[in-house]
Each structure stands twice: as C-alpha cells, then as structure tokens.
C-alpha cells in the first residue's frame, strides 16, 4: 500500500526522518524538540496517492551543474525522485546551549541486502554549501533489511542557520530566507552505484501549534 503513497520504490523506502535538538537536563531527563519529522507510518489503500510536481519547477533550487538534479533525473530511474515540503517547527526558545545535541535520524527499509550511501547536500540559492556522505549496512529484522542512520550530528552550518533564522522577528522573514534554503538527499547502492532514492527538501516555518508538518510529492517531468 505504501507504493505511491510515501517516499519509496519497490526496492527501498524511507521509514523515518527527523531533525531534532535534544538537551540533557540531568542524567534521567531529556528535552527533545523535532524541527522536522516524517514518521513511521504505514499508509493504507484508503489514503490518496502522492501528488506530483514537475521537477523543472525546482531545478534552480538545487545544484544544476555536473551531478545536479537535472542530470540525476535524466539518468533515472524516474520513480526514485521525491519532493518534501516541510513546515518546520521553530517554536522553541534556545537560551542555554549547555548539553545541547543537534541531530538527524533516518531509517530506510528494503527487500534486498545492500550497502547504501546517503549523500545530504545543503544548498543556498541552489548552490551546495555542505555535503555529508554516510555509508550504512543492512540489518535483517522482521523479514526485511533495515538501514538506520541514528543520531547523526547536525553540521555547524545547519546549527548556525537555525540560530540565525530564530533571530528573525517575523515568520514571513524566516520564510523568505527559507525560500533559498534546500536540502538534497541521494541514496545509492554503494556497490552498484544504482540510484535508489533522491529526495529534494524545501521549507517553510510551521504556523501550527502541533509541531512540524509535511507534504510529499513525486517529482516528474510531464
């Protein structure tokens, strides 16, 4: 049921993604705040299929030169391309940085035993500013292969970016900055170099009192 309803292909799917900050108050208590989150949901057949977005509408928000989004899409396979619009939850006061941890956790599952490489590129005005590349090995659990990138430390650039964003007095100003801030994640099979997933992330600030929200789209070329 999840095919066409979440980020995935017959080979692999994203099960969970979250970017968070966590502060240890004392040995037994933590405060955790989720900036963005895609949960461990199992969509049913009742749920609507993902809407699609023409990838050409967002090319310039991501690297355009060699190895850029256009080149990736031309190489395919085209069913591996997704767009996530996040409404990030920035409703938190960061007063004391002591014991603060900024991290990203993501989890994928597949039917095949692979070693995956995950590249995450942070882009400003479509230009890559930092890239993190992680390699993850499969763990067999409940009849499928799991890949968990657990509590990967957020880079300094992102932490500073969040701090600067928080200093802006109005949400429309934050959204105006976020219009030129994007993240591109590319998951490949390390051994075959096959593209498994390519997820483009764009952002706005959440106005909800219920935390981060998101919409997922398929990227297509009509």
């Amino acid at each position: 049921a999840w095919q066409g309803r979440c980020i995935g292909t017959p080979k692999i799917r994203l099960v969970e993604f979250s970017a968070f900050m966590e502060q240890q108050r004392d040995p037994e208590s933590y405060n955790k705040h989720l900036f963005v989150h895609i949960g461990q949901s199992s969509p049913s057949y009742n749920e609507a299929l993902l809407e699609s977005v023409d990838i050409r509408q967002i090319y310039d928000k991501f690297p355009e030169k060699k190895g850029g989004l256009k080149e990736l899409f031309e190489k395919g396979p085209s069913n591996t391309f997704f767009l996530v619009k996040f409404w990030a939850d920035l409703s938190i006061n960061i007063q004391d940085e002591a014991g603060m941890f900024y991290g990203v956790t993501s989890q994928y599952e597949s039917t095949e035993n692979m070693t995956i490489t995950c590249s995450s590129k942070v882009c400003s005005f479509g230009k890559q500013v930092v890239e993190k590349v992680e390699t993850e090995y499969a763990r067999f659990e409940n009849g499928r292969f799991l890949y968990r990138i657990h509590r990967s430390p957020m880079c300094e650039y992102l932490i500073n970016f969040i701090h600067k964003l928080k200093q802006l007095p109005e949400k429309y100003m934050m959204n105006s900055v976020l219009e030129n801030f994007t993240i591109l994640q590319v998951v490949t099979n390390r051994d075959t170099q096959e593209l498994l997933l390519c997820v483009a992330y764009v952002f706005e600030v959440s106005t909800s009192e219920h935390g981060a929200q998101h919409h997922i789209y398929r990227l297509v070329k009509d």
């Binding site: 977005v53 023409d54 509408q57 005005f125 219009e179 764009v202 106005t207 219920h210 935390g211 919409h215």
Partner: peptide
C-alpha cells in the same frame, strides 16, 4: 543568476504546496 529567480509562489506547484497540513 540568484537575483532573477522566479518566486516560488509564481511557479506551477500544486495548491497543497501552500497549505500546511492539519495534524490528524
């Protein structure tokens, strides 16, 4: 160039792109 970008609001994107989902 970065200064002549078309604003996202003026691009062909689904209506839902501008509608923050309500938590269920």
């Amino acid at each position: 160039g970065r200064h002549d970008q078309v604003p996202m609001r003026k691009r062909q994107l689904p209506a839902s792109f501008w509608e923050e989902p309500r938590p269920t």
